[in-house]
Design a protein around this nucleic acid. Structure first.
Lengths: 124, 124
DNA sequence: CATCGAGTAAACCATATGGTTTATTATTCG
DNA sequence: CGAATAATAAACCATATGGTTTACTCGATG
C-alpha cells in the first residue's frame, strides 16, 4: 500500500472518522468526553445533565453524536441508563493525526537534507 | 490547575479546536491534508484542484475551512497562489486527544487496582 | 392502579455547511 | 490595449446541526 495506513480502508472507516472529528468539533462534547474520562464511575444521564448544567434533551442529542462516533455508549436497559466512555474511536482519530504528521515530518526531513545539500554545494 | 492542560485556556483556544476538528470531519479535507503532507512542494491552487478532481470554487471553500483551523496557509500574492500545510494546529488537536486518553488511562489503572484489591480481598 | 420520574422522541426554528452556477477581480502575455 | 487565465466572491439551494419547547414511553413506587 505504501500509505502507512492513512487512507481509509473502507467507506465505513471514513464515515467513522467523519463522525469522530465532527463529534469532537463541539466544545461541550469535548468537555463531556473529559468529564467522563475523569471519573471512575459511569454516571446516569440525569446525573450528567445536572453536573454539566445542560437539559436532558440536549444531553441526549450530544450523546447521540458521540454514540454515532463510537466515543460513548449507553448501558443499562432499565429506566436508568449510564454513560460510558469508549476510547477506541479516540485512538483511531489520534492515529490518523499521527500518521498525517509522520508524512509531514518525512517531508520536513527531506527538505532538511535538501537544504543541507544546497549548503554543501555552496560550501564546495 | 490539575487538569493536565486539557481545559482550553481561552475561548479562542476552544474555537480553534472547534475549527480544527470541524475541518478534519470531512473526508475530502482530510485527504487534502494528506495530499499536502505527502508532497515536497507547495502546489498551486489550480494544480490541487486538478489533482484532486475538484472544482476551483469548492477547493476554495475547503481551503477556507482548513485556513480557519490554521491547518493550511495560502502563500504568494501574484495571480498564482500556493497551498502550504501548517501542522501546528494538527499537533494541538493531537495533544487534546492524548490528554483525554491519559485521563482515561488513569481511570483504567484505578479500575485495575480496584479489581486487584477486590481479588485480594476474595483470595484472603 | 395511578402517578411520578428518567429518558427519549418529535416538532420546530435559526443558523451553518457542502455544493453548484454565475459573476468578478486581478495578472500575465500576445 | 485586449484576450486568456488563476483565483476568488456571490447568489443560491438542499440538507445538517444546535437548541428549545412540547409530548411520549416505560419502569418503579406509593
Amino acid at each position: 500500500m505504501g500509505d502507512g495506513g492513512l487512507q481509509a480502508r473502507t467507506e465505513g472507516d471514513a464515515d467513522r472518522l467523519d463522525a469522530v472529528f465532527a463529534a469532537l468539533s463541539h466544545r461541550s462534547r469535548r468537555d463531556l468526553v473529559v468529564y467522563l474520562a475523569a471519573r471512575t464511575d459511569s454516571p446516569r444521564m440525569s446525573q450528567v445533565a445536572a453536573d454539566r448544567g445542560v437539559s436532558p434533551q440536549l444531553l441526549n442529542k450530544h450523546t447521540a453524536a458521540l454514540e454515532k462516533a463510537g466515543l460513548v455508549r449507553r448501558v443499562g436497559d432499565g429506566r436508568e441508563r449510564r454513560l460510558v466512555l469508549d476510547t477506541m474511536a479516540l485512538i483511531e482519530a489520534q492515529q490518523w493525526i499521527v500518521r498525517a504528521r509522520e508524512y509531514w515530518t518525512a517531508r520536513l526531513d527531506a527538505l532538511d537534507s535538501y537544504i543541507s545539500t544546497m549548503e554543501d554545494d555552496h560550501d564546495a
